[in-house]
Design a protein around this nucleic acid. Structure first.
Lengths: 213, 213
DNA sequence: GAAATAATTGAACGTTCGTTTTATTAATGC
DNA sequence: GCATTAATAAAACGAACGTTCAATTATTTC
């Protein structure tokens, strides 16, 4: 037996990426074997090596694409001008939407960093740093103009990112809350956390509608 | 070769626990081999099985002790009475102190859950649930008495825990910030996040001193 | 000081791992 | 329709894995 009828390189590679993302997210990189992955794709293990020279190459590819997609998603929002509050709002919305939609690759990119070689780890961390820098810039602007009231830009950025990314730990689509509802609540928490002034000292604006899925 | 001079079961078991915590936190459970662990302890791999019947038993032991210690630490604060703000403040302080001190076992208990058998996973998750319930109770009391102003008790609890536990990702003792400084900043962020009223509508109290290590 | 027990070694077991090699067949270009 | 290339299967590689077992020595008990 050899080449099978209807076999197509592009389709196979896409299937490998997809299956690998799901398997590694569920069982972890070390606990996922190439044979298990191959079985999921419906192919022999040796066939995987036509697309990814090593297991680590596959992991790195998944992570790199995830980080680049994250930066691209934020860059595509065109929300880099305007008030700090507006920009922060856009950042939160984009972050939560992206991470919920890409729960599996987010899990991988956050949990499997130790399985990368030092050079590749550095490469991924550089992209992550660039992303976090975007948030710090917003917070710094807000702190300087008085739109926000916070102690430490770096700590606040980390706290916000951990808080927002943490959504993927418990959020399951179609359960109690909708994406829009979660985003709205997290947006309100974010604005309070950074001590955002609501313009002309209005009382806090809370919109409770649409919180349920 | 057999029993070595000065060998002591209790000491060996403690050494195994310690080495396992560090190794698994650094390289992950699946990537840590029994031989590697044995070498770190200074013993042959077979000796480990005198203390832990399987590798998973070892992992479970580490996790169970971590969760029980976490609950015990909170229970030992005797801060279960008083105003919601005071209780929340105690909770944040205890949570951050505990997690910084036990970074390694926290990492394990958060990241290696998938390596547990279903029954043991349930057991650990039950303890985690009990801990989170403590926070929700504080938030609910605060929301009902008007001390806090928040949208959703459950979501706020998850956001706070993710935010606080996230400290272990970037915090390194002896670097820019002290534990006290981090705790103070996180306490301020927490209080703003839950919309805590500062009693008689005082302006926000910010204490910037002692933030540096 | 002999007997019982505690602690550990060293070797081995079967299995699974990531990966390589070789052969074979499907699709493509001329 | 023949040669070439793309895609895969099948089998094998050595290494490492978790774990077991028998033998051996230190310590404790009486």
């Amino acid at each position: 037996m050899a080449r099978t009828t209807g076999s197509d390189g592009e389709k196979t590679e896409a299937a490998i990426r997809e299956a690998a993302t799901a398997l590694i997210a569920h069982h972890g990189y070390e606990a996922t074997s190439m044979r298990q992955l191959a079985a999921e794709v419906g192919v022999q293990a040796a066939a995987l090596y036509r697309y990814f020279p090593t297991k680590e190459d596959l992991l790195f590819t998944l992570m790199l694409e995830h980080m680049e997609a994250l930066l691209a998603a934020w860059g595509g929002t065109h929300a880099h001008a305007g008030s700090p509050a507006a920009r922060l709002s856009a950042f939160v919305g984009n972050h939560i939407a992206f991470h919920i939609e890409r729960r599996h690759s987010t899990h991988i990119s956050n949990m499997e960093l130790r399985s990368l070689s030092p050079e590749r780890l550095t490469r991924i961390l550089k992209l992550r740093g660039a992303y976090e820098k975007e948030l710090r810039a917003i917070l710094r602007d807000g702190a300087e103009t008085g739109a926000f009231d916070l102690d430490d830009v770096g700590l606040t950025a980390m706290a916000l990112i951990q808080m927002m990314t943490g959504v993927i730990v418990w959020f399951r689509p179609g359960e109690r809350l909708s994406v829009a509802g979660v985003t709205e609540t997290y947006l309100a928490m974010t604005m309070r956390l950074v001590g955002a002034t609501t313009g002309r000292e209005e009382p806090h604006v809370h919109q409770h509608a649409e919180l349920r899925a």
